[in-house]
């Protein structure tokens, strides 16, 4: 297995690390302009952001909706409506740990592979995984409404990392460790099949115009499957999008992490804004024919280089 960490890979590790550093500094040094954890942050004494799932759970459980919650969570949801679930790929502290964990796992797998030992890599079928996340999310919301506890704010492995960085509240880190351990048997099962925060952002960003666009003129010339193999969320980027004549990766799971763009040895994939007026703003297109190239705002470019099949 070959994994390349390209410019987006490094960029998103940096942004996630910056967020975690801010949390630790805000909680322990108090710079005066930032305090917060993954649940809520206050920047510059003015800008308050509230985790949308925390806001939903709290509002349902307490049957109230304050202006701070509405604005703080609304800003983040509004961002996701335009940009998709970028929190997952670029900010999430647990995502950062899983990224680093994966890097380690691949190195270990390579060493073991030379000795003929294969690491297990169990995957839930994609359709079950994507549905399970929403079942978990629904379960938490139903529980919040009836049981009156915002359960995910207690057991979240994401908040466990943030909260231990900021306040030294460490007991739930055990759960984060379990998520990292399970990741060795079933890669990314937390993000793909379980995380309710990811599910919240995925629903909000389901129709986000900012997407990974596919240059259909170049797609399929060198079907190397690099994009599919590098997608942390298990989206078959090449098979279901590039080779299906779809001008953009419309998967609900896509976190805009850019792993496929980094991995693409040609110039088939890139970030762009989907022009919804020509791709069908209501989400429907006719037939199985290739969509017009004008469906993507950015014009097609010349390929940078041609890759070997299966590189």
């Amino acid at each position: 297995m070959i994994r390349r960490v390209g410019r987006f890979g490094w960029s998103r590790r940096l942004t996630a690390l910056a967020f975690l550093t801010l949390i630790a500094v805000g909680g322990r040094v108090d710079p005066g302009w930032f305090t917060g954890t993954a649940a809520a942050t206050e920047i510059g004494g003015v800008l308050r952001l509230v985790d949308p799932l925390a806001a939903l759970e709290s509002s349902l459980a307490s049957r109230s909706l304050g202006i701070d919650v509405l604005l703080g969570a609304g800003l983040l949801l509004g961002f996701a409506v335009l940009m998709g679930p970028v929190f997952c790929g670029w900010i999430c502290p647990m995502g950062l740990l899983l990224d680093l964990n994966e890097g380690l796992r691949i190195r270990v797998a390579r060493v073991l592979g030379r000795r003929g030992v294969q690491l297990p890599a169990w995957h839930l079928p994609r359709s079950s995984a994507s549905r399970l996340r929403f079942v978990v999310l629904g379960g938490l919301l139903g529980f919040a409404l009836v049981g009156r506890w915002p359960v995910f704010q207690i057991v979240s492995p994401i908040q466990a990392v943030a909260s231990s960085a900021a306040h030294g509240v460490t007991a739930m880190l055990a759960l984060s460790a379990v998520v990292l351990a399970v990741d060795w048997l079933a890669p990314r099962i937390w993000c793909r099949a379980l995380c309710p925060l990811g599910a919240t952002y995925a629903l909000a960003g389901a129709f986000a115009p900012f997407r990974v666009r596919v240059d259909l003129a170049e797609a399929g010339r060198t079907p190397c499957r690099s994009c599919t193999r590098h997608c942390p969320m298990g989206v078959p980027v090449m098979e279901e999008y590039a080779l299906q004549g779809r001008p953009s990766v419309d998967a609900l799971e896509c976190t805009r992490c850019g792993a496929c763009v980094d991995a693409c040895p040609s110039s088939v994939l890139g970030f762009g804004v989907v022009d919804r007026s020509s791709s069908g703003g209501n989400g429907r297109r006719s037939g199985k024919t290739d969509a017009p190239r004008s469906a993507v705002a950015e014009p097609a470019r010349e390929p940078r280089k041609v890759c070997e099949v299966g590189s």
Binding site: S130, R131, L132, R133, F134, V135, V136, L137, G138, G139, L140, L141, G142, F143, A144, L145, V146, G147, R148, W149, A199, A202, L203, A206, F207, E240, R246, D250, A251, L252, E253, S279, G280, G283, R284, R285, S286, G287, K288
Partner: peptide
């Protein structure tokens, strides 16, 4: 016509969310 992945996923997600909500409410 064909449904774009995100729309289908969105509706499926909402259905799954509803199922989960029922179970969660029971536990609650």
């Amino acid at each position: 016509t064909m449904a774009v992945g995100s729309r289908r996923g969105f509706v499926a997600g909402l259905v799954a969310l509803g199922c989960g909500a029922g179970a969660g409410a029971g536990l609650g």
